[in-house]
Structures are given as C-alpha cells and as structure tokens.
C-alpha cells in the first residue's frame, strides 16, 4: 500500500495499478475470511481447503499484476473502447442510471413493484431522458401492472409485493 502511494508522482502508473490493488485487497480480505475454516475434516478435505486455495491464488495473481502491470496490457488493443471523452449530457445520464440501480435494490425491499416501476420511469424517462412526465408516469404504471398481472399472476414468477400488489392479485383469483 505504502509502496504504491510513493508513486503518486506518476499518476498514469498508479491508475493502471489501482484496479489490481483493489483486487489484491479484496482477495486478502476473503482469504482472511477463509482462514478460520477447517481445511481437513473427518470426511477428508474440509470446507476451508478450497476457499483458502482460491483466495490465495487470487491474491498471488493480483499481487503479480500490482508489481508488473505491464503483464496485463494487450498489445493490439488501444484505448478506443470506453475511454472516450464524455460530455456533461452523458455524465448526467450515467449518474441517473448509476443511481437507478441502488434504487432498484432498495425498492425491492420496501416499495413493491408498481411503485418501483412508476418511480423508475419518472426518474429515467422523464428526469434523465427528458420525455413528458405524463407519458413516463403512464408507462411506469403500465409496466408495473404488466409485471404484477402478467408475470406474477399468469406466469408464476414473483415480483416485490406490498398491500397494493396483493390486492390487485386478489382481484384475479
């Protein structure tokens, strides 16, 4: 860690090492988790053996890459993919979609599917992509209904459900 910090003067090389450093940290963290498991049990090899081996393997590979990031460079591929300059419009969109994902995780715990669809459509279709808010709301509600009735009721999949979804489902039973 301290070793990498010493190279701050060369930001390009630090940037290249950063992902591998993150990986090394994660591997060591997982190795630390696996450390307490028995590596041998009465049935033969125990529950700990394999995780200890795989996490140690990851740590070694990631460590090598931190030391010699050149080994990860591909000769023919340049920075054409993904590394293009982006303007403020794209930055705003990326932020909106980036926030939408954690929202989905929270909404599946708390809000139920219909409210989730409506909020999502409002946030993305209206907020980020600048379509009319009415259209977005109707679209979101329709998606929500289609999810509850089509997927949950007709197809036997399940969607996050609260009082609202359950009362709609009861109408069909």
């Amino acid at each position: 860690m301290g070793w990498a910090m010493g190279r701050v003067a060369m930001p390009g090389r630090v940037k290249e090492r950063l992902p591998f450093l993150a990986n090394l940290t994660l591997s060591l963290l997982l190795l630390w988790q696996a450390r307490g498991l028995d590596s041998w049990s009465i049935l033969g090899p125990g529950p700990g053996l394999f995780p200890q081996l795989t996490t140690a393997f990851c740590a070694v590979v990631a460590g090598l890459l931190v030391l010699f990031p050149g080994l990860a460079r591909t000769p023919d591929k340049s920075a054409e993919d993904g590394e293009t300059e982006i303007g403020p419009a794209e930055r705003r969109l990326f932020l909106a979609y980036g926030l939408a994902l954690p929202f989905l995780a929270l909404a599946s715990v708390f809000t139920g599917f219909i409210a989730m669809s409506a909020f999502l459509a409002l946030a993305l279709t209206w907020g980020a992509e600048r379509r009319s808010w009415r259209g977005a709301l109707v679209f979101g509600l329709l998606c929500g209904l289609a999810g509850v009735v089509g997927f949950d009721h007709l197809l036997g999949a399940s969607v996050p459900a609260t009082v609202l979804e359950q009362s709609i489902l009861r109408l069909f039973r």
């Binding site: 715990v109 708390f110 459900a161 609260t162 009082v163 359950q166 009362s167 009861r170």
Partner: peptide, 23 residues
C-alpha cells in the same frame, strides 16, 4: 428476513380489508 416480515404484515392488513369479499 426483514422483507418477509414486512410482506406478512402487509398481507395481514390486506386480508383485513378484503376479508368480507373473500369469504
């Protein structure tokens, strides 16, 4: 587990509302 408790409570509430119709 949290989620499931929430579901159950919500369901019971809805059941109270819908009891008349369902039975």
């Amino acid at each position: 587990m949290k989620r499931r408790n929430f579901l159950a409570t919500g369901g019971a509430f809805a059941a109270g509302l819908g009891a008349g119709i369902a039975t």
